[in-house]
Write a protein that binds this DNA or RNA. Structure first.
Length: 790
DNA sequence: ACAGAATGTCATGCC
DNA sequence: TGGGCATGACATTCT
């Protein structure tokens, strides 16, 4: 009797709620018409997840507000429960409907007993009809204004779910084959419809719904479900008109539809599916379950009804119910279901991220702060899916998606009770999305370990990457500048900052140009400069060229090279290579040419040098700067009246030089001077070449240093990338390990304690090892071996 | 006047 | 052995 009282009281409360809803009805329609489409688009989206969410919300709202007692849902609900029990007996299936019934369990802790009866409520409302006579109860509900009574039923059902055992015992009589049950349900529904008609309710709806049942095979409306939503709504409204109760009617219809869908779903589960692996189920999750039936049922206007609840889902009652739903789910369904959730998330098509986004968006549509929403999601997730702490990571991690396929296997390994029906799980997730923060806080009370927020994890990872790079750079002893430099080098292929002027290209050419300008009398175009005059001879010219070509990078600064003023700067054309070897070796030049050019080009006459030169050459000051510009050997040669040019003296081959000397009758001093001039000249050129080579060597070394630095930078970059990759891999492995561990269940379906067990990876796969067990003992039978994920 | 670079010269060693 | 080259060291020159 206590139960009856409770149910009755509750029925009254719900009835009141329905009345209030009636008053709002018009607004509701408007709201639906105007805002549903956008909401739909925002919340639902194109994916199956959309339907899930919608249906879920609908279900919630229906439970809270509006499953009309008239609806056959009640009857079907009981059937559903019965089916559920059967399914449970199969020990590998979790029926989503269970969740539905569970919603109100917590809401009315007292009614826990309810399990004892679904009939209880019916009796209370309906004048104590037999508990099993759902029809009567429903009829009474109709009379009473329906929604309340229906809700009561649902409550009872939930209660029953909460206490499965009693429920089972009471419903044993009702248990029959699924086929029989369906027929029976139809009959009951017809009875209810008749009663409703008597009450003024339109027969259309009932017939329609009944038709739905009868024509489960017909699926014409499946796809039209959304499109026809409004039409259906209209029809529903029309029915309401008949009854005179517009809203109730609609609600009733909704409830009926929902119930039908649930029943059908159950039937489908039992009859059609082996309860193991219906792809659609796994793919769509709980919602898919719910949705599938609805689609099959031609009738209904799920679209609209669903939407209506969505719009109203903000109400505390819905939230509370959702919360209760989650709680009940948590109680009723273990981690196994959670595992299925993973599948759901994994199977949510390639748009896992989108799915998550959609969820958040949906939440946002309900006016909840986004941040809160996310947290909410997390907390809910934790609350409802304590063992699924790692569900989201795969959801967001594309790499983990591949794992999802194998998850079912893992689940099976972990627990024999695992069910392939993920609907419950999915529903849980969805429900969680809509839970308000306060509820979440309470949720956390029941949660186990804190689960990582998927978004935060993503951000964390990305941030870690950046930070790690910096850390790595710091570890390498890189300063900011070096780091930035590294960045630049990494970005640009031309990391070499060497001055192009350092290029060792064709020094001989430069020499040539310079020399040609410097000495008109030089016999060799390749090396006519005074210092190089010696190479101007045929035999030596080639040698000189080759030698200088090998030297290559000698590049004194232009100003310095030309400071002697013999060469016309314009001839260098700014070519760095040409700047080499511009020294004034006038002593090699013929006096005439030397003098002439000096007079033209030389502008600077150092008094000191002039004096020195004058002293050395003993020339008279009046001979001006020409003498000053001349080299000492030139002056000496002039002073000694040497008949040859220094150029010839220096550059002639030994044989020719000797012949030349032999032809000329020179005294000892002259011969000595000529030999010294030749020696010094050659030594001068040798010195220049030597310096060139030295400079070239330096430049090459510098270039080598640059190359090494560049190579170092590249290696460092690679190292950083590898470190990053390793770090990411470690994180993934860790997350996967946690996820896997969280999904593991012992024989009793309980999760393993992280303080007692750990996962060990080996060539044969993943092993669950006790912490106190050493690696050596790892081969003992008690450990469980898992398939490798990857 | 001085520093520093460029250049020239010498001495030396080597081929 | 002498010529030539390379190079270090020093001196000179120049800026």
């Amino acid at each position: 009797m206590l139960y009856l009282k409770k149910y009755f009281t509750e029925g009254l409360i719900q009835f009141t709620i329905l009345l209030s809803l009636i008053g709002v009805r018009l607004d509701l329609d408007t709201y639906l018409n105007n805002q549903l489409p956008p909401l739909r688009e925002i919340i639902l989206g194109p994916s199956s997840a959309y339907t899930q969410t919608q249906f879920h919300n609908l279900r919630n709202t229906l439970d809270g507000y509006g499953i009309h007692p008239k609806s056959v849902d009640l009857d079907h609900f009981f059937t559903t429960r019965r089916l559920l029990n059967q399914v449970r007996s199969l020990d590998h299936l979790r029926v989503p409907s269970t969740e539905l019934s569970a919603w109100l369990v917590h809401r009315d802790p007292e009614t826990v007993v309810s399990a004892t009866s679904q009939s209880g409520p019916s009796i209370a409302l309906d004048n104590g009809g037999s508990l099993e006579d759902v029809n009567n109860s429903e009829a009474s509900a109709m009379r009473g204004a329906g929604g309340a009574s229906e809700t009561t039923y649902s409550l009872s059902g939930e209660d029953s779910l909460g206490a499965v055992a009693p429920e089972d015992s009471q419903e044993q009589g009702e248990r029959e084959s699924s086929d029989d049950l369906s027929k029976e349900d139809i009959d009951l529904i017809d009875i209810l419809w008749r009663q409703d008609i008597d009450l003024g309710a339109g027969r259309k709806v009932f017939n329609y719904s009944s038709r739905q049942k009868e024509s489960e095979a017909d699926k014409p409306n499946e796809e039209n479900e959304e499109a026809s939503g409004r039409e259906e709504k209209q029809s529903l409204t029309h029915v309401d008109g008949e009854t005179g109760e517009s809203i109730p009617t609609e609600l009733t219809s909704l409830g009926a539809q929902t119930s039908l869908s649930l029943q059908e779903c159950l039937r489908l589960l039992e009859a059609t599916f082996p309860f193991g692996e219906e792809p659609e189920f796994q793919a769509t999750g709980s919602t898919s379950q719910l949705r599938a039936p609805t689609e099959e049922t031609p009738s209904t206007s799920q679209g609209i009804p669903l939407q209506a609840p969505l719009s109203q889902s903000d109400t505390p009652l819905d939230l509370e119910q959702q919360w209760q739903d989650i709680m009940s789910i948590m109680e009723l369904q273990d981690m196994e279901v959670n595992n299925t959730a993973v599948n759901v998330s994994m199977n949510n098509d390639p748009n896992n991220n989108n799915a998550s986004t959609t969820d958040s968006a949906t939440i946002g549509s309900f006016g909840l702060p986004r941040s809160t929403l996310i947290n909410q999601d997390v907390s809910l997730h934790q609350a409802s899916l304590p063992s699924c702490s790692q569900d989201f990571p795969p959801l967001f991690n594309p790499e983990l998606d591949s794992i999802g396929v194998q998850r079912p296997t893992l689940v099976r390994l972990s627990s024999s009770n695992s069910s392939n029906i993920n609907s419950t799980f999915g529903a849980t997730n969805l429900t969680g999305l809509f839970l308000p923060p306060p509820l979440n806080s309470t949720t956390n009370l029941t949660t186990t370990p804190v689960l990582p927020d998927p978004f935060s994890s993503l951000l964390e990872e990305s941030m870690l990457d950046e930070i790690s790079l910096l850390d790595l750079a710091m570890e390498e002893g890189f300063s900011q500048d070096q780091a930035s430099q590294l960045e630049d080098e990494l970005d640009s292929d031309s990391g070499l900052s060497l001055d192009s002027s350092h290029s060792p290209a064709s020094p001989s050419n430069s020499d040539t140009s310079c020399s040609s300008a410097a000495s008109s009398s030089s016999t060799s175009a390749t090396f006519s400069e005074e210092g190089a005059v010696g190479y101007s001879t045929d035999s030596e010219a080639a040698t000189a060229e080759a030698e200088e070509g090998a030297v290559g990078g000698y590049q004194p600064e232009y100003s310095k090279l030309c400071r002697m003023g013999y060469q016309d700067p314009s001839q260098f054309h700014g070519i760095p290579q040409l700047e080499s070897v511009n020294h004034n070796h006038t002593y090699n030049l013929p006096l005439a040419s030397s003098y002439s050019e000096r007079s033209q080009l030389s502008t600077s006459c150092s008094k000191k040098g002039r004096d020195k030169q004058m002293q050395q050459t003993k020339l008279q000051p009046p001979q001006d700067c020409v003498d000053r510009q001349s080299s000492r050997d030139d002056r000496r040669a002039r002073a000694m009246d040497i008949p040859f040019s220094n150029d010839k003296i220096i550059n002639l081959p030994v044989e020719e030089f000797n012949e030349l000397l032999a032809k000329q009758h020179l005294n000892e001093d002259q011969l000595s001077l000529i030999r010294d001039i030749r020696r010094r000249g050659k030594n001068k050129m040798a010195a220049q070449n030597c310096r060139k080579r030295k400079l070239d060597t330096i430049l090459k070394l510098e270039e080598g240093v640059q190359d090494l630095q560049r190579e170092k930078a590249q290696l460092l970059k690679e190292k950083m990338e590898y470190c990053k990759c390793i770090r990411q891999t470690k994180q993934k492995v860790q997350s996967l390990s946690q996820e896997l561990f969280a999904q593991l269940r012992d024989e009793e379906g309980r999760p393993y304690s992280a303080s007692e067990y750990f996962l060990q990876y080996g060539p044969d796969g993943v092993l669950l090892m006790p912490l106190n067990m050493t690696t050596e003992q790892s081969n003992k039978p008690d450990k469980k071996q898992k398939d490798k994920k990857k």
